[in-house]
Amino acid sequence: MPAARIIPCLDVRDGRVVKGVQFRDHRDVGDIVEHALRYRDEGADELVFYDISASAEDRSLDFDWIRRIGREIDIPFAVAGGLRSREQAAACLEAGADKVSVNSPALERPELIGELARDFGSQCVVLGVDSLARDGAYFIHQYTGRVDRSRDTGLATLDWVREAVDRGAGEVVLNCMSRDGVRNGYDLAHVAAIVAAVPVPVIASGGAGAPEHFRDVLLESGASGALAATVFHDRIIHIPELKEYLASCGIEMRR
């Protein structure tokens, strides 16, 4: 196993970093390259950039900010948001992204996953899912970037993740929506269920509020990495100290 990955997620809108609570009320938190460099310097293992408005507004990614980041940072990063075609994915990779992450458009047309995996390899194709519990089971939500379009698809999270991996997704970022931005810990049972269901790496997202939450999800759920936004943007958790703490708990860290 590689070292467990600590992954800051930057929600991007119009080339700026924004952050909301439970996908709402986004506020501007700063320049994208400045954030990327700061996280690289602090020891982030990877970065994820979500263009939160693209998917819901049916517009494609603006590739210029991807190029700016690709030039500046020397750690891997994934780009997500509104990728609907092989051509758009190719443009992202060409601009310097290491992986592309698909969410809502893959739900619209699941064949997209196989097309990307065939041309770029599974290791480039990340499946992003937004999962929320209802009546004791988890379901996939779509178009979560916009309050007015966000909807429950009725698709069981476990079924969709299995299907997407069969189609060629090489990694899963599991966002537990009820935990997003509320900082009360990752949903360990849900992450563990997804880890057990698929052979590919699973990244836990949603709920990080304290170093112990990272420890719990990395020790107990089988996640390959932990993604967070608020605690890093708001400097509640400092990555070098977090990594030192996790290493002291016996978790392999790149430092």
Binding site: E46, V200, V202
Partner: peptide
């Protein structure tokens, strides 16, 4: 178990 593929991440 405990060995996801693709091998993705930082290894020593």
């Amino acid at each position: 178990p405990g060995l996801p593929v693709p091998h993705m991440g930082w290894s020593r």
